[in-house]
């Protein structure tokens, strides 16, 4: 059982922002509760006030200004079930299927995952790979935060004490863009040992790889974007096996993961190499298929 707390219901984002201001650092926001409630049960966190934002409800995913707009309260399983998500940001459906177990996907939310900022969480890795933006509200107004800035370190975000994450905006997939999310886990449902989210853009004749974006999770205090330099062996190329292997090797040489009871640093580096190589291959293959498919 958890410690005692005052339970507060928020029916709107405005109310949530106000309650969040009143409680300050003594309050915690309850979204899906799949990370927070275990911590409450273990008494690792003992807030005086718990602000339940579930009654606000999530508006359906929608597209506006070439961006997929997700309410922070969108649940992981909504990513799997939404045709709009599959069409415009299909990587989210691929990655969401690998989150937790079926009960976690039923309750857990995308906003909660971002704010929890676990360095091996699937949602942060994908949102960073898609170069998403986070919308935060506070009594001072609204702030738009790039994912790269938002994810600061282990369980730490750029949100100020009075700010609340309300929405996530993700650029929709462009013509000829492929995607892949791969992770290695000890069992389905575990946190990723290492995970890779990749997008690849192909030229209009589907021949040349014109752009890549690759994010690796589980190897540092936050998901890492591979630099242009690391990707240079494959950008401008044709997606040849040796080009992709070169990027995998460069990525592995860059990361400095820590060893823990589940995996040694060397094993994580090796996974970085292999998963980066495979994710690139899959993303390029899909980009090529998309490119050709649309040309018919």
């Amino acid at each position: 059982m958890t410690g005692a707390f005052e339970y507060q219901l928020a029916d709107s984002w405005e109310e949530a922002v106000e309650l969040h201001r009143i409680w300050g650092e003594d309050g915690k926001i309850l979204a899906g509760g799949q990370s927070l409630v275990p911590m409450l049960n273990l008494r690792l966190v003992q807030p005086a006030g718990l602000i339940d934002i579930n009654p606000i409800g999530a508006v359906e995913p929608r597209v506006a200004d070439d961006r997929l707009v997700l309410s922070a309260l969108t649940r992981h399983q909504d990513l799997l079930r939404s045709p709009l998500v599959r069409e415009h940001c299909p990587i989210l459906a691929e990655g969401a299927a690998q989150i937790g177990n079926v009960r976690v996907r039923a309750r857990g939310t995308v906003g909660g995952s971002m704010c929890h900022a676990d360095p091996s969480g699937e949602i942060p890795c994908m949102v960073l790979a898609l170069d998403g933006q986070l919308i935060a509200h506070s009594p001072r107004g609204q702030r738009v935060i790039d994912a790269e800035r938002f994810l600061r370190s282990y369980l730490t975000t750029d949100l100020a004490e009075d700010e609340l994450l309300t929405e996530i905006r993700l650029p929709i997939r462009k013509h000829g863009q492929g995607w892949a999310f791969l992770e290695t886990v000890r069992r389905y449902s575990d946190f990723a040992t290492v995970e890779v989210a990749a997008t690849a853009t192909l030229s209009s004749d589907a021949h040349t790889v014109t752009a890549l974006r690759v994010v690796v999770g589980g190897v540092a205090d936050r998901p890492l974007i591979l630099s242009d330099e690391l990707l240079s062996a494959a950008v401008g190329g044709t997606g040849r096996d040796d080009e992709l292997r070169a990027v995998g090797a460069a990525a592995a040489a860059t990361v400095s993961p820590e060893s823990d009871v589940h995996a040694s640093a060397d094993y994580r580096r090796r996974l970085t190499e292999v998963l980066t190589y495979r994710a690139l291959g899959k993303a390029i293959e899909r980009g090529r298929a998309e490119s050709k498919g649309a040309g018919v």
């Binding site: 509760g33 799949q34 409630v37 275990p38 049960n41 579930n54 009960r103 039923a106 309750r107």
Partner: peptide, 15 residues
């Protein structure tokens, strides 16, 4: 919960 499997240990009765 409304037909979806969920963990009863991660919900409060008031919810």
């Amino acid at each position: 919960l409304d037909g979806e499997p969920v963990s009863a240990c991660l919900l409060f009765a008031v919810q």
